[in-house]
Amino acid sequence: MTLTVIKAGLQSSLQAAPYRGLRKLAVPSGGAADGLSLALANRLVGRPLDAAAIEITLGPAEFRADRALAVAVTGAPCQVQINGEEAEPHQTLHLKAGDVLSIGRVWAGCRVYLALSAEIEVPKLLGTRSTLIGAGFGGLEGRAFADGDVLALGKQGDDAPALVTPPELQPFFGHGFVLRVVAGPESDRLALGMAALARKRWRVSSRSSRMGLKLQGNAIDLNSAAPIRSGAVFPGIIQCPPDGLPYLIGCEGQTTGGYPRIGQVIRADRHLIGQLAPNATMLLVPVQPDQAEQILHEKLKLWAEWLPGLALV
């Protein structure tokens, strides 16, 4: 009753719902970097939308089912193979005992989600099975997978009905992203206002992880680069360190910071941060908080039928 990790790749880990309500203890939210793709994968294998699944960074990675199992692959586009035969993302795949599932290198985007019909049996910690890789707890021993890891599976069967994500709902990922942002608490320090963020095309540097992403582009002019008194940061906050190049806080980013906070990616778009790979480009489009609220409601309405109860975090 297991799944064997043959090739873990760059970073594969167990991710589910975020840690909730623990930021005052400086515990990051974590969870799936792209919670929408996690939900889409779980939907295809009949599991709760935020059940624990495998988050694969950039690929390739390889797994062996040691029992019959239904699985589904979503997120960044990549080649999917079962025993060397082509298989499709965004549909329920039935594996027999001994079948090898291979995930190729992603063509665009950053993270692939592999959901299983059976529960992955690691203990829940502080309410979730998500791995906080930076803090070193949760998930499988608080770490990313290593080659040869064996994941214990629950009793749930392989009889998940065969489903396909409706084609019009399959997210498309390219190399360019548009993220909408509201002003941050220190946006008034931007010498050119929010236009300083909007008028540039930003590139994601190789210094990127679940904790945060360093952006490249022309340095931003601040009226004052003085540090702030340490205060809260949340996933999606854009900080401006003294070098003027923005740092975008990821899902596993620390809970407080001392650099000026010059923008905040809106909640409706935050799942896209999980798909930003090094060299991806992005445009930051300023909106007002009430517009951001409206955009979230519209996005949730779009998903309500296929993913009932979806929460974007």
């Binding site: 909730r20 309500g21 205060g231 809260a232």
Partner: peptide, 11 residues
């Protein structure tokens, strides 16, 4: 959902 004290702020 979260109550986060800072040195001179509450979020």
């Amino acid at each position: 959902d979260d109550i986060v004290p800072g040195l001179d702020s509450l979020s």
